[in-house]
């Protein structure tokens, strides 16, 4: 079920219900699905369990407060949650400021273009498929790059592979994922 188009369409609806009706039941379902994943992400990034639990709660509270900022034509709910969790990690674990790109002057529209929302959902679907078929070595590397408190040179040190190899493998994997996500045959 997770990752299916039907469920993701539903997650988008859940965020809309939080935004429009402060719907606690919708929030509870999102919480059940995403909070344990955010907690896992933070623990793999080096947080102990207590801290990860606390921060996962904060990330989910942020999701509630920023529901009006979510734009389903630009990202899936999973991607949006990932970016909120990532920002919390930089702030809390790395204790750094995170420079963010300038926001484009567009904001979420009151009635998002359904075709665009569907296109994003199909991309997420294709991406999940591509991730599942990635060769094991590439897949492990992609996971370590996103999840885990390792810079690429630290990954190189722990795997014993040259940094150049790490970078080119990761670049290949990302290139493949991005192309399959866009439905571009290569």
């Amino acid at each position: 079920m997770p990752g299916s188009v039907a469920e993701q369409a539903d997650w988008t609806g859940h965020v809309a219900r939080i935004r429009d009706a402060a719907d606690q039941a919708a929030f509870a379902e999102l919480f059940l699905h995403f909070a344990p994943r955010v907690k896992a992400f933070l623990m793999r990034s080096g947080a102990n369990e207590t801290l990860a639990e606390e921060c996962a709660q904060e990330v989910m509270a942020t999701l509630w407060h920023k529901a009006h900022m979510f734009d389903p034509t630009r990202a899936s709910v999973a991607t949006w949650v990932f970016t909120i969790a990532r920002n919390r990690k930089v702030d809390m674990l790395r204790k750094q400021r995170r420079p963010e790109p300038e926001d484009l002057p567009w904001g979420p529209e009151p009635e998002p273009e359904q075709a665009e929302v569907m296109a994003r959902q199909q991309e997420s679907e294709r991406l999940a498929g591509a991730l599942a078929t990635l060769p094991e070595k590439q897949r492990a590397l992609v996971e370590a790059a996103y999840f885990g408190d390792l810079s690429h040179s630290e990954i190189a040190a722990t795997t014993g592979l040259p940094l150049g190899t790490i970078k080119s493998r990761l670049r290949l994997a990302l290139d493949r994922l991005r192309h399959e996500m866009k439905g571009v045959t290569r």
């Binding site: 997770p2 992400f41 793999r44 709660q57 991607t79 970016t83 997420s124 999940a128 991730l131 996971e143």
Partner: peptide, 26 residues
């Protein structure tokens, strides 16, 4: 697109159970 890969990995990760009462606390 590269952030979307992060979202896909988040969907796929082995979840870590939240503590009792975490929803209420949130």
């Amino acid at each position: 697109e590269i952030e979307a890969v992060g979202g896909a990995i988040l969907e796929d990760v082995e979840a870590e159970p939240m503590g009792a009462g975490s929803l209420e606390a949130t």
